[in-house]
């Protein structure tokens, strides 16, 4: 199962991630990404990889998690 992780130190609120993956990432009122925290559905994994790759600050990583919590 894959989760999206935002590095809040690296993030500079470009907001590309929310445009590329609106199903999982929203922006707060200051433009910083809020990830809903649930496991990523398989059909969104490739969009998530693109969001991670296209982040100008490299603030997004995808994490493989074994456990369910």
């Amino acid at each position: 199962m894959i989760r999206i992780l935002v590095d809040p130190v690296a993030c500079d609120a470009y907001g590309y991630c929310a445009e590329l993956l609106p199903e999982s990432i929203a922006l707060d009122e200051w433009g910083y990404p809020v990830v809903d925290g649930t496991p990523l559905p398989p059909e969104l994994v490739s969009a998530a990889r693109r969001a991670a790759r296209d982040c100008p600050r490299r603030a997004i990583t995808l994490r493989e998690r074994k456990s369910s919590h």
């Binding site: 809040p8 130190v9 993030c11 609120a13 707060d28 200051w30 433009g31």
Partner: peptide, 8 residues
């Protein structure tokens, strides 16, 4: 360092 803290 972090937007949510700086602005929130």
């Amino acid at each position: 360092q972090c937007g949510p803290c700086v602005y929130g």
